[in-house]
Amino acid sequence: MVAPQLNVNFAGVRFKTPVVAASGTFGFGREYGELFDLSRLGGICVKGLTVKERHGNPPPRIAETPMGILNSVGLQNPGADVFIEKELPFLRRYDTTIIANISGNTVEEYCELAEKLSEARVDMLEVNISCPNVKAGGLAFGTTAKSAALVTEAVKKHSSVPVMVKLSPNVTDITEIARAAEGAGADALSLINTLLGMRIDIETRRPVLKNNTGGLSGPAIFPVALRMVWQVSAAVKIPIMGMGGISKAEDAVEMLLAGASLVCVGTALFSDPLAALRITEGIGAYLERKRLDSVSQLTGKVQPYQL
């Protein structure tokens, strides 16, 4: 039997495998690049970029929770110009798809970022309208259908590469935001960003995070992410990159069956830096076991009960 096809055509962009490193957990690839060959990844979503350099929130920025972590990094990054000049050439040495994750305080900033980064020839944009850890912009754009559509439409006008919109789970109805982004021209969606959470130190009566609240990720949120991808995939026609707590190949297969065409691996890298590679191998093994030719045959193939 021929080895199953792992490559995916996602909104016109080729990914050699369905497994992508999640934004915010992977920096610009340099550190993990010392541990494995980045060309073995389907793609890399780089650390969220802003127009100007951001120093992020004061520490502590992380707290462990049962099967999860809370983080409040606050979009620390050197700014898009430094990324284009110093980091993108390094990433381009690898045979993998590069997705630039962008965050603005205003619609104009999103547009400026879209223009700069598509001119710099990243393969795709991931528009972050769902960061829970910054005051201005960030999550605010992702919590109403109207503002999500506004940002999406503006970014589309200023981008020459496909645009994916990253959705927040911190909303009443994620399918409403998904439809709004699709209606405004989004080429794809990614979900979910982290769930807003909190921990308190009962001795000091202080929040564990200096930012008081943070974004929850890790296996604890996987069932929530899976449910949301399933709901969104029924609501839109554009492809979905599914993420949220995927830590093993079986999780990734569930996510694909729920409706995702690609999966992102993030927090799992902290316990196992090679998690993305192990998940890729495991997906291949599953396809062989099920005698399927291509990973695309899994997307949306869950057979829900009819109620």
Partner: peptide, 8 residues
């Protein structure tokens, strides 16, 4: 290893 930026 310097990728996630939490230990500021």
């Amino acid at each position: 290893i310097g990728a996630c930026l939490v230990c500021a």
